[in-house]
Design a binder for these strands. Sequence first.
DNA 1: ACCATATATTTGATTTATCAATTATATTTG
DNA 2: CAAATATAATTGATAAATCAAATATATGGT
Lengths: 148, 148
Amino acid sequence: MNEIDFQNPEQTIFYQIEKAIKQYRTMAQNNLNELGYSITINQILMLIQIEKRPEISQVELSELLFKDVASITRMTELLVKRDFLLRAENKDDRRKKDLRITDKGKTIIELAIPIIKKNRNIALAGLNQEEQENLFKALNTIILNTSK
Amino acid sequence: MNEIDFQNPEQTIFYQIEKAIKQYRTMAQNNLNELGYSITINQILMLIQIEKRPEISQVELSELLFKDVASITRMTELLVKRDFLLRAENKDDRRKKDLRITDKGKTIIELAIPIIKKNRNIALAGLNQEEQENLFKALNTIILNTSK
DNA sequence: ACCATATATTTGATTTATCAATTATATTTG
DNA sequence: CAAATATAATTGATAAATCAAATATATGGT
């Protein structure tokens, strides 16, 4: 596994990472779809962040969700249009917008959270505490190595 | 790390995976951009696969690159237009297309391979052989858990 | 208080990706 | 062998993401 083998990309760690996250996203989205709402994982994760930290800015959301701020603007518009979110001007800083979850938004969050938990458990099944910690640490090393 | 904490998503493994792969892609693309060609990592990876297995089909490429077959069609069109690839009808199976790397394509592959190797080394720095193997295995578990 | 700079969000243009439907050819099966 | 089914690639419509530029407001230094 030391020499990079382009003939067998499936033997590289980065191929594994891509495949793992891709499959995880697909599974997670499929399970979420069974709720019958048509909403994406990213939209739900955004709603959850806003509920937990109502004062969060769109810039902070973009960092948390690994998206461009322009994407957050458009996700926000969509969620407002679909009545999951309210957007209003912030009193203290008029550049900012206050984002608030609607009742409909709260409902879907409540429905989605157990699904997300289930998804994560499915994906990590068979990995014990130590293995999960080592995975976390190894990923953290990659994150540090590739930052900036 | 056992209870899922939506307040601190950065403490979940899936957040780490997303962040690691996102940062890796960004770094890899930035280093590739220094070649001066404007080509994406995905396009290079596709060229490399075709060079190694000239008989590969677009369906197989789509699996290898985690993309829709429609995406592969459009990537192919682009690479043909930019003279990195040739596309011709396959003699034995007229549904298929033969994809062949042009000289220009070969040149850019030669230039890109050392960059990709460097990128992978940068990202994995500080992880010894055993840690890399464990990372690989843990990711493989996730892949198996989330397949179908 | 004024000006330069920084920050938050939005907008327009473009790129990339996906889905569903279509076309063309190959294979299987009754 | 004909009809049904499967496979490979393409196309059109749409969604999602990014970049760069624009707008509006806030902050810091003099």
